[in-house]
Amino acid sequence: MNEQSEGKNKNNRRQFLKNLGLIGTGAVAGGAAIYSGYRFEKSKDESGERIRVLTADNKLVEVDKSALKEITLDITELQKRGREGLPGHRWVMVIDLSRCRNARKCMEACQGAHQLRAEQHHINVLQMQDSPTTAPYYMPKPCQHCDNPPCVSVCPVDATFKRADGIVLIDNERCIGCRFCIAACPYSARVFNWFDPKDAELHKDQLYDVELNVPQKKGTISKCLFSADRLRVGKMPYCVSACPNGVYYFGDENEDAVTNGTTKETFRLSKLLRDNAGHLLMEELGTKPRVYYLPPKNRLFEFPDKNILDNEHHT
């Protein structure tokens, strides 16, 4: 009795599988027919015109014109490309302290581009004097875009992040305003929007670009971005272009080349640093900055206030 019913079951199963196979084959054949029909219909749309396109990783490819789709720059796309960065580059800045005369054009250009208040500095030109017996000098101080950034380590929500191209950005759509990064940064490179940002009403409908960090947002951090938006279109950062005194060099460590923002002359980065004894700011903290300084030697101008050590924060 049992055996019999088992045999019957087996038969049933075999029959079922057979049927399933038939249905499957039929479905695939039908699907293929529909698909080829679709392809045929679709091929009518193809213009036949081929276009060469340079991809983001520098490959030249050919595609049909009809396959091209313009990407609208919505917030999702801006955020995506802002976090990915510019592949293949390692941005680097060199600041020549012997040339800075405190013209402050860099500060102006920067504050204008990033919609900052007068007291908010992404780049700040500081009056420095290392010790009472040494000469004072001016030191422009942007974010150092550290390779070991303390600010990024402490951020609880990945609002500030390090890109593969070396830039440290801040996403004010993510920032919760805890200011742990301000506490952690030894270069005082970060500012906070304590109130509604400058001209908030004017910029309120502007699309947020993480590479420019505008519009600024109340209750979030802002900082120097190495003008990531300008680099994307092949231009030098705002501060670098604005300098009248040839203080800034900007370039790509991978190419070992930096270009002076004022004279547009290009130099070999390694040679420039070697010949001029380039150094990093507070290297001993292990932050691995991406901004190099050339020493303030042979300055051809007078420093206005020789006793700055007395009225500095130290006392």
Binding site: S153, V154, A159, I176
Partner: peptide, 26 residues
């Protein structure tokens, strides 16, 4: 009360980074 954007408190759970001492504290 110390947060610039208190309405984003859930972000600490949604996007929390384990490297940050704030996560350990929470």
């Amino acid at each position: 009360s110390d947060m610039g954007r208190p309405e984003r408190l859930p972000y600490v759970l949604m996007y929390g980074r384990i490297q940050s001492p704030i996560l350990w504290d929470v």
